[in-house]
Amino acid sequence: MEQKSRIVSPVVWQLLSFVLFFGLWEVAGRWPISFAFPPFSKTFMALIRMIADGSLPKAYLSTLQPLVIGIFFCSIAGIGFGVGMGLSRTIEWFSLPVFIVLQAAPMAAIIPLLTYMYGIGLTSKVLAVVVLAAPVIVMNSYKGIRNTNPSLIQMCRAFLGTRRQEVIKIILPHAAALIFAGLRLGLAMGFIGIVIAELLITPTGIGDLITYHSSVADYPEMFAAIASIIMLAALTIHALERLERRLFPPEIRET
């Protein structure tokens, strides 16, 4: 058994899983049930066409803009807030309930409110990304700080370390892995946020491609747009996950 799995590398199995999935998609698409569900081959051709005529790259240029701004803002303010909540009881007292509610609330319901307050421009789309991504980034940073091994803090105090040294040399390195994991989860939420925003607020970028092609019944193009954003999100999150494992190998994290 062991020898066999050594010969067939995991990459082969992963490729096989893709082949199986796309194969089933092809068969399902050719089944004459719904005209609105194109087979894989047609979708793939549509994807190539959309890349070639520049409509897909152009759409991503406008989709990624609010996503990048939103995530950038969240990673600075969100981590700052989370760390602050972890370090100070006062900040924790008045902001923890808000973030717990935000984390549980169905955020898509807030988006019409954002449109009402901030219009249909970039601001509401950035905010849509922020309201979805911020809670998980803040909560992870907060938990990372709070879960610091008390023994390590006492060790620092026993060596007459200052509070500043305690934070910089013990608490922050200790929380780094969880904070990074929060960023990764936040980015995943950000992708959800931006697609919801583009579908609910005003169709721009990838949301526009999806709505437009669906309204003129170009189903392969519509599916290609959907598949492309799923692919992009999956690849980005996967890359971040690998980076996370390199930066913070599980064995040097506190158990």
Binding site: S151, M155, C156, A158, F159, L160, H174, E251, T255
Partner: peptide, 25 residues
């Protein structure tokens, strides 16, 4: 004070851990 759970920094090697008291100073 020697801690029951040793209180070693999991992300630092033995050398840095042993020198940590001096690092703080």
């Amino acid at each position: 004070f020697v801690f029951q759970d040793f209180a070693l920094l999991p992300w630092a090697n033995v050398l840095r851990n042993v020198a940590f008291g001096l690092e703080l100073r």
